[in-house]
């Protein structure tokens, strides 16, 4: 599904992502962990087209997506979320979800003034959005401004928003950061369900390993921009390189 080959990104002299090879198969839920500054978020940014890679290739669903603009990466069905919830602050919760739908006719400024041309599609999309919000138990706040939500709710809106785009694969940057443990588990249950029912592939960056490891079968570890582990979450604590990377951070 997603394949990065020798992917590299430098900032000045710093090698934030240093020739990383990662492959995620269709239908998998894979965790991506590593100490702070190990290059996980940069990796996601490069894959999603926010940064242009300095070296290497990214393939998605068989297509070469290296260096595509973010909106083109999205079009392929690869969608990302953000570590700190980044909702559109001047919009309602409902609008935040609505905005993410793909191929909206009314977004074309030449069609926008003519409601007849996009009204029907808009109504259908509204129904889908409402369904998503209901699934995330956000129906009651759908007409609230995005700024009026709690941190946990914002995380959920981000998920719903990402889902509205009908992704083939989601890159989630810490979906459980800053939420209560119980809700964190609910979010992961939801992820598993989406994976099973809709066949969405997930690559999840997460710091809360205790929760993450209960839900993923495979975990990738990055350190200093390099991939140092790829395998079963159970064995990760035994791996010397991983231990060194995490201990090194603490020292």
């Amino acid at each position: 599904m997603l394949k990065a080959v020798g992917l590299a990104k430098y900032f000045g002299g710093i090698r934030a992502v240093d020739h990383v090879d990662i492959e995620v198969d269709k239908g998998e839920i894979v965790g991506l962990i590593g100490p702070n500054g190990s290059g996980k978020t940069t990796f996601i940014n490069v894959v999603a087209g926010v940064y242009k890679p300095d070296d290497g290739k990214v393939y998605f669903d068989g297509d070469d997506i290296t260096g595509l603009d973010p909106w083109d990466v999205y079009r392929k069905g690869l969608v990302r979320s953000f570590q700190v919830p980044r909702l559109f602050k001047g919009m309602l919760v409902f609008e935040n979800v609505m905005v993410a739908h793909r191929a909206q006719k009314g977004e074309n400024p030449l069609l926008a003034p003519f409601r007849g041309l996009w009204g029907k599609q808009e109504e259908d999309l509204a129904q889908i959005s409402l369904g998503l919000l209901e699934e995330a138990q956000l129906s009651h706040v759908r007409l609230n401004w995005a700024t009026e939500l709690s941190g946990g709710q914002m995380k959920l809106v981000e998920m719903s928003r990402a889902l509205a785009s009908e992704p083939k694969m989601l890159l989630l940057d810490e979906p459980a950061a800053g939420v209560a443990p119980k809700l964190a588990r609910s979010i992961f249950d939801y992820i598993v369900r989406l994976n099973r029912e809709r066949g969405i592939t997930f690559l999840i960056v997460e710091h809360r390993l205790d929760i993450l490891f209960d839900y993923v079968e495979r975990v990738l570890v990055m350190s200093n921009g390099k991939l140092i582990y790829d395998g079963n979450p159970k064995d990760v604590y035994e791996d010397e390189k991983v231990i060194e990377a995490y201990l090194g951070e603490r020292a």
Binding site: E134, A136, Q137, G152, P181, L183, S186, R193
Partner: peptide, 18 residues
């Protein structure tokens, strides 16, 4: 709408713990 299946959200879900 009445919550159907989906997320089981704990009652005190508004607490952020970071």
């Amino acid at each position: 709408m009445k919550p159907t299946a989906g997320l089981e959200i704990p009652a005190e879900r508004d607490e952020a713990d970071s």
